[in-house]
Amino acid sequence: MAKLNQRVWNNSSLTEKTRLCVYQACILSTLLYGSETWTTYARHERKLNSFHMRCLRRILQIKWQDRVPNTEVLERANMSTLHAVLSERRLRWLGHVKRMDAGRIPKDLLYGELVEGQSQADDRPAWRHTVRQGALCAEAERNENATQKRRRKQREQQLQQKPSAFTCTKCGRNCHSQVGLHSHSRLCK
């Protein structure tokens, strides 16, 4: 990511779409090389996803002060979380192994304990479609859960907040300190 600072990320002549394409082609493909066979823990996936989100925010020029949720960042970039990407890659690999000839080592290892596999994996286009739809459904459910969690947290914060003496005269925002009010009033329009 750092090696492409001058050429891509800080280059004003490139569009966002081009930067995102370069990110997918160079950064994500390198980051996730061989991820189909990784055994990851939840903390590994969280770290990968946070790196992914930091990169997207940098490409889209969204600062943390803008308080834009991850779901909106992913929507603007027209991408999925790395959780969904990893799941999709693993399922595609399983479909590939299922279609292998008998006697191949990956297939023997996968089916060593199993009697039957899924018959749907034999048809590659149908399997890819099923995997993509499953990943999209899981992503939509994850986004909905994140949105609900964010709303609950905001409601709890609103209930706990007491009215402040430091309220913006322009927008009515409670700043809870004189320094916060001063900082907010410089940016409030």
Rank of each mutant, 00 (worst) to 15 (best):
residue 3 K to D: 09
residue 4 L to S: 06
residue 5 N to K: 14
residue 7 R to D: 14
residue 8 V to S: 11
residue 12 S to Y: 15
residue 15 T to H: 11
residue 19 R to K: 15
residue 26 C to D: 09
residue 26 C to G: 07
residue 29 S to Q: 06
residue 30 T to R: 13
residue 34 G to P: 08
residue 36 E to R: 05
residue 38 W to Q: 07
residue 41 Y to E: 01
residue 41 Y to C: 07
residue 45 E to N: 14
residue 45 E to Y: 06
residue 46 R to N: 09
residue 46 R to W: 15
residue 48 L to C: 10
residue 49 N to C: 11
residue 57 R to V: 03
residue 59 I to V: 05
residue 60 L to Q: 04
residue 66 D to W: 04
residue 69 P to F: 03
residue 70 N to F: 10
residue 75 E to H: 09
residue 79 M to C: 01
residue 81 T to M: 10
residue 83 H to R: 09
residue 86 L to D: 00
residue 87 S to M: 05
residue 89 R to L: 00
residue 90 R to P: 01
residue 92 R to N: 04
residue 96 H to G: 00
residue 96 H to A: 13
residue 100 M to I: 03
residue 101 D to E: 10
residue 102 A to C: 06
residue 106 P to M: 05
residue 107 K to I: 08
residue 107 K to Y: 07
residue 108 D to E: 10
residue 111 Y to I: 07
residue 112 G to N: 09
residue 114 L to D: 10
residue 116 E to A: 07
residue 117 G to L: 04
residue 117 G to S: 12
residue 119 S to I: 01
residue 121 A to I: 05
residue 125 P to S: 02
residue 130 T to I: 05
residue 130 T to R: 12
residue 130 T to G: 07
residue 131 V to R: 02
residue 132 R to H: 12
residue 133 Q to C: 08
residue 135 A to D: 02
residue 136 L to S: 03
residue 143 N to E: 15
residue 144 E to Y: 14
residue 144 E to D: 09
residue 144 E to Q: 15
residue 145 N to R: 14
residue 145 N to E: 12
residue 147 T to A: 11
residue 149 K to G: 01
residue 151 R to P: 01
residue 154 Q to P: 00
residue 159 L to T: 12
residue 163 P to C: 12
residue 163 P to H: 07
residue 163 P to Y: 08
residue 166 F to C: 13
residue 167 T to N: 15
residue 168 C to G: 14
residue 174 N to C: 07
residue 176 H to K: 05
residue 179 V to E: 10
residue 181 L to F: 04
residue 183 S to W: 05
residue 184 H to D: 08
residue 185 S to E: 12
residue 185 S to P: 03
residue 187 L to T: 13
